[in-house]
Amino acid sequence: MTSLAPSENLNDPLVTVDGVSFSHGARVIFDNVSLTIPRGKITAILGPSGTGKTTLLRLIGGQLAPSKGQVTVFGQDVQALSVTELYSMRKRIGMLFQSGALLTDLDVFENVAFPLREHAVLPESMIRSIVLMKLEVVGLRNARHLYPRELSGGMARRVALARATALDPVMVLYDEPFAGQDPISMGILVRLIGEFNRALNLTSVIVSHDVKETAMIADYMYLLSEGRVVAHGTPEGMRASREPAVTQFMEGEPDGPLPFHYPGPDYLHDLMS
């Protein structure tokens, strides 16, 4: 699983997003966005809701195609891959969906075992020990007979985390891992993501709007707003930044360069008409 693709070079960044534009109907989501995800690090992509952070993950996973620009993953142009190559690339990527996206007709054990059963021809005893190990790490080994409907949101996300790492991927993409979690689950998830990254020598991409938690574990941060990268740097550098858009987001101020109001005619104009 950790073998390199032919065109891969260990010194290159794992993912390069180069001048990518993407629109959803008439709405422009990305306008000439460029960023790089270095190997072995935790990279955070921050931004207010609705800035297309999830879309960015889908572009990396090849589920969406950019209208302009190039996405390179493991040294391969994602758009140039055939369907088979795309699927084999995805086997090296784990993804944690915001909702967990567990298969509702399988129990916890079978959910974690799913990628192993689909992709690897392993004896049942080996599948069992891998699954139990992954579940032990997220603390849900004894919940393995429960079904997704019996899990809390935080537990579902931990199961999804175990599933995303079941095939020992090179990179894990996290889509809003902290959204809607109570402080305890949030703490658990922050710790788990950090531990996984170190213990499995992973590369992690976290897409989030929870600045504080993300800054605790991220090595590098990108701030997206209105389809563009407005700032990037290390967490310390970002905190020290004097740029108004950065301080607004880092401090959570309601209004600033990122407007509080949805764009359109002003209030007075609407009232008078």
Binding site: G61, Y87, R90, A101, L102, L103, T104, E118, H119
Partner: peptide, 14 residues
């Protein structure tokens, strides 16, 4: 709707 199909795709399962 619950992203299960998208999750399958991302797991490399068609």
């Amino acid at each position: 709707a619950t992203e299960q199909l998208a999750a399958l795709e991302m797991m490399g399962v068609d």
